[in-house]
Design a protein around this nucleic acid. Sequence first.
DNA 1: AGCTCAGATATACTCATACAAAAAGATAGG
DNA 2: CCTATCTTTTTGTATGAGTATATCTGAGCT
Lengths: 246, 246
Amino acid sequence: MKLGAGATAGKGRNLRIHQALARQIGIAILSGEHEPGEAFGGEIEQSEALGVSRTAYREAMRILTAKGLLESRPKAGTHVTPRRRWNLLDPDMLEWMFSGTPDERFIRDLFELRGVIEPAAAELAATRHYADDLARMDEGLSGMRRHGLASAEGQAADHDFHTALLDATRNEALASLATSVAAAVQWTTRFKQRFHKQPRDPLPEHEALRDAIASRKPARARKAMEELLRLALADMPNINMEDPRS
Amino acid sequence: MKLGAGATAGKGRNLRIHQALARQIGIAILSGEHEPGEAFGGEIEQSEALGVSRTAYREAMRILTAKGLLESRPKAGTHVTPRRRWNLLDPDMLEWMFSGTPDERFIRDLFELRGVIEPAAAELAATRHYADDLARMDEGLSGMRRHGLASAEGQAADHDFHTALLDATRNEALASLATSVAAAVQWTTRFKQRFHKQPRDPLPEHEALRDAIASRKPARARKAMEELLRLALADMPNINMEDPRS
DNA sequence: AGCTCAGATATACTCATACAAAAAGATAGG
DNA sequence: CCTATCTTTTTGTATGAGTATATCTGAGCT
């Protein structure tokens, strides 16, 4: 089993062996290739099968353990932990999860989380933001205007806008959910691009939101964000927010 | 510099060297002993200074890198990453953060996050919960009744109640915030115990919340959770939710 | 003076091997 | 049948050698 060069188009660049291994095995676990509770083979066996040294293999295991995917004890061996213990909102985990075919149900969950976090964040940002927060949001907006949401630059600008908003809450706990929110945003737009040839331009709502925050109206900011999310959801016809079972 | 046996009373049990090291260094970084951007010494130098092998030291670094605290490149060395990249909501990180004297401002942030997550979660749980979710919540409640919130068992039962509620949302993204919410809950009660000799019993609100969920009334469940949080906040006189700057 | 490129160098990274510690499982004793 | 001890498997730790790569240096060119 080879890894390394261009393992996964787009993101698989220049990773050290232990990182590439962690990514590869992490993706395998997240995609359901290994059941929770399943025992991995011993270190020697596995590292040889993968064609890497025991050192590199062990360092990969440390990474996966740190993210709650594995646990290992002497004599007992290494096992996949129950899903409940996985740090699903970890940035790397999200990247791994979405590197392949993402689970539609988890995208729904993420979008729902976004629906919980962002309206509250908008409200807080409206009262607490500083000038530079607004500047960052405006920069994001102009980037979206310039490049459009079809391009990678435009999507990055969208990302920046939402991250700036979360930072403006002056709440580090909320701000560290930026990656999770960004993942939801990313897949929202990706779905839109997939289903509509001519997707609706979400810029007006973004600007309304920005203005509500700039004028320090918390209630209006929340409403603006909720409207933005409502319209975003409307563009994802295949996502059903009502039924929790797939 | 010694580590190992009983490093931090209460939690420092039976950790392997790499885990103990990661914990120790992680705590040091989180408590501000190392500025973001600061360069660590080389592996050889550091591992010798700590009296451990390079293997163990490197594995500790892998763990800390996985949590976003460090990054390292050949020739450049190992540096502390900017705070914005830290995975503050990672369970281990929370444990490390609260092992010493916790930052009061971050507790405020966590409580605010709780205030965003839990009302929404209560609303969702009311419509989506299954019988076993309710059973778990009831078990938590009876544990709180039996032991009281002054005891460790009672606090664990409280923890279980809130975790069961998050699980009842059938949303894995929300559920994986359980540890963060639990940390906030834990410090809420800890503050209460510290300031009031005879802290108010929060059981009535918990029961009202449970009943609202059991009878599948989303709006009432949200209200009940908001009331619970309002009263909890009232018992923390030193936490000021208005001023974002400490 | 500024830029491009080639080389030197420091540093993390990988590998192989040996040994230590821990914990699950087997075995003997009560 | 339960308890304690011994055995053995598996991860954990240590060490030394060698590799790869990003940064830095400086020469040569524009």
